[in-house]
Design a protein around this nucleic acid. Structure first.
Lengths: 190, 190
DNA sequence: TTAATTTCTTAAACTAGTTTAAGGAGCGTA
DNA sequence: TACGCTCCTTAAACTAGTTTAAGAAATTAA
C-alpha cells in the first residue's frame, strides 16, 4: 500500500521508521472507480494526491462549462487541486480517475502539520513544488514556442504510455486544441 | 539594502539576527543597467533573483530566435532562470533588466546550502515555490479559458503599474500574442 | 538640432485552429 | 441481440490571431 509513496519520498529525504509512521498516519487511502472524482473526507479543501494505481486527470471548468485538462498523473505521480481564484474565490481544481484508481490523499493542513512535526518534509515538499513549478513553466514555454502539431508529437514522445491510456479528447484539452483538430492532426501523420 | 528581502522572508518565517546574517551573507548584490542581463558571478548556473529596485523580465528564445516572456518581476518580487531542457540540456531562462535595476542573487547551490544551515529556509522556499507553482498553473488556465482580449484586460487590472512601465511588445509576448495584434486590441477599446 | 534606431500603429492578405454538422465506431447494459 | 450512449472522424464554413508591409512616433546618440 505505502511502498510506492515511501520510495517516492526516499528519492529526496531519508526517513526513520517513526517518521514513516507519522507520514503514513496522515494519508487517507481512497479507491476511486473509473470516471469518479477524488475528494478527501470532510468539506472541500486543498489537497495533494499520490497515485498508487490507475490514472488521474486534473481539470478546470470555465464559465461556459467547458473543461480544460491541466495535468495527468499515472502511477507514482503526485497531483493536486491547488489553484487560485481565477474566477471565483475557493475555486478548486477537480481530479478525476480515468481508470479504476487507488490514491493516497493528503490535505494541505495535514501537510503543514506534518512539516511542523517532521522538518524533513519541508525539504521534500520544497523539492516537489520546485519541480512542479518547473514543469508548469515548461508547459507555458511549449505553448508559446510550438505549433499544436509539434506539441502533440512532443506529448507522444514524452508520455507514450499515457497516449495509449487516455482518451483523445482529454489529450486535446491538455494540448489546448479541440478534439476535432487533434483528430485531423492524427490523420495527417499516417 | 537588505530591508525589503528580510521583510519578504519574514512574511513566512521568523529569523534570528544570526540567521539573517547567514542569509544575507549568501546573497550577491548586483546593479544592472537598463537592458542589461542578470548573471551571478562565475559560470552559468540556476539562480533566484530578488528585485530590490527596478523591473526584470524572464524570457526564453526559441529555435527561430524569437523571444517569449514568461514573467515580470518589479520591486519586491522573486524571479528565477529555472527551466528544464525543452530544447537543449542546460537551457536556462534569461533575465533582463527593463530599467536601472538592483537585485540580490542567490544561486541554487547556495540555496541548498542555506537550507541545510538554517532549516527554516526549507519552509520559506517550500512556500515560495508552492506559490510560484500556483501562479504558473493559473496562467496556463488563463490561456485555456480566455481570449487574447480578456487576457489583456485581466493583465491591466492585475498589474496596472506594469502596464505603464513595460514596453507593449513585452506585454504582447507575455500574453502570447503579436505586438501588432495587441496594438489593434488597444485601438478597439478606446 | 539632426540622424539613426527602435517601438508603435494601421491595414490587407493570410493561416492555424475552431465551429458546426453528420456519420461511424466502439462499448456497456439490458 | 439491439439499444443507447459517448467517443472518434471527416469535411466545409468560419474566425481569432499572424504575417507582411509601410508609415508615424518615440528614444537614443552625436
Amino acid at each position: 500500500m505505502y511502498t510506492a509513496i515511501l520510495a517516492n519520498v526516499a528519492r529526496y529525504v531519508a526517513l526513520t521508521a517513526a517518521e514513516q509512521q507519522a507520514f503514513t498516519n496522515q494519508l487517507q487511502p481512497q479507491h476511486v472507480a473509473r470516471h469518479g472524482l477524488l475528494q478527501p473526507a470532510g468539506p472541500p479543501v486543498r489537497y495533494l494526491a499520490f497515485v498508487v494505481r490507475g490514472c488521474v486527470r486534473t481539470y478546470t471548468t470555465d464559465a461556459r462549462g467547458r473543461e480544460h485538462v491541466l495535468a495527468f498523473a499515472p502511477e507514482g505521480w503526485w497531483s493536486s487541486n491547488f489553484t487560485s481564484a481565477l474566477s471565483a474565490p475557493r475555486a478548486y481544481l477537480s481530479l478525476q480517475a480515468l481508470e479504476d484508481t487507488e490514491v493516497l490523499l493528503l490535505r494541505l493542513d495535514q501537510l503543514e502539520e506534518l512539516c511542523l512535526q517532521v522538518p524533513k518534509f519541508e525539504r521534500f515538499f520544497r523539492l516537489l513544488f520546485q519541480n512542479g513549478y518547473l514543469l508548469a513553466q515548461r508547459r507555458l514555454t511549449a505553448r508559446a514556442h510550438l505549433s499544436a502539431e509539434a506539441r502533440y508529437a512532443r506529448f507522444c514522445r514524452h508520455y507514450p504510455q499515457l497516449h495509449q491510456r487516455v482518451a483523445l479528447k482529454h489529450i486535446a484539452s491538455f494540448l489546448g486544441i479541440t478534439p476535432e483538430f487533434l483528430s485531423t492532426l492524427r490523420g495527417r501523420q499516417v
